[in-house]
Amino acid sequence: MRGLLWRLAGSLPALAAVIVVTFVLTRVLPGDTATYFAGPTASAESIAQIRAELGLDRPLPEQFWNYLRALVQGDLGMSLTTGQPVLTDILQRLPASAELTLAGLLLAVSIAIPLGILAAVKQGSLADHACRVVVTAGVSLPVFFTGLLLVYVFYFVLGWAPAPLGRLDAFASAPPTVTGFYLVDAALIGDWETWRGALAQIVLPAATLGLFALAPIARITRASMLAVLGAEFIRTARASGLASSTIILTYALRNALLPVVTTLGMVFSFLLGANVLVEKVFAWPGIGSYAVEALIASDGAPVQGFVLTMAILYVLLNLAIDMVNRALDPRARRA
């Protein structure tokens, strides 16, 4: 427990640095927020008025101080693109991104890990080559392309998938918010119609993401399995006449999982903020497209809020991965 707190305290300087850097970056970036939001038919006075209202006419240190004071009170500022407090926006959009990313990751893991194991165990076999092909395709096809392709085939041509209108069909209503994950919230109240609707909506975007996430996971599983399978304790186990399934699944896999879990964490946090294009194609109201829209409009507060949220998530995620690693590997607990 004390170690945990220490680790959290250790990440504070990093967070402070993130706050300073994003503040400076959003101010240094070219682009004039006031001019943009004054609209196409603005006069010079109205631009000045907006600038004053946003506090952008004050000296930088004063702006920073105001930003910090608000931040301490949990106020991330207002988004000009949505007209809402940034915190509200992020709290609303983060679950959407997280649900999609988790679904994609789950899909990727369920294919990539068996594939990686198979490729490692039967090195040079057909399965190994298949693994290589899938992995190469996964990384080399850009997500917006796979996304559009899937929409074209499964929605436009075949009509199997529902309209890519976001998390739910336009005529369905969202389940009451408990976790923010529609699949979980709908299941909690036993609303299976909404649950099926949400599931149908998430399949294509999750498959798009999953295809992309497949590659690093399968690669690392294969490499890590190969390393473990060559280790002495496996040779001992084989010599002792243990069944090959026991050796692979019980002994080799558990030892090989450590780097896989670490990779999973990285892939998760990367996908969470970086699946902008998938969010765009499927009209998914996620956090990545939110940040990019804001950036295009040089709307500083959402960008700062987004970076800060992601930084905090990274810290927490790393912590979680460490804990999982400790659970998996007794050696990690002593270290």
Partner: peptide, 21 residues
């Protein structure tokens, strides 16, 4: 009236052509 924000022009086109919008 439901007005949905769909950022991708390709998706908007698919929706209107398929008859969903």
């Amino acid at each position: 009236v439901i007005a949905r924000d769909i950022a991708s022009p390709s998706t908007r086109r698919a929706l209107i052509e398929r008859g969903d919008a």
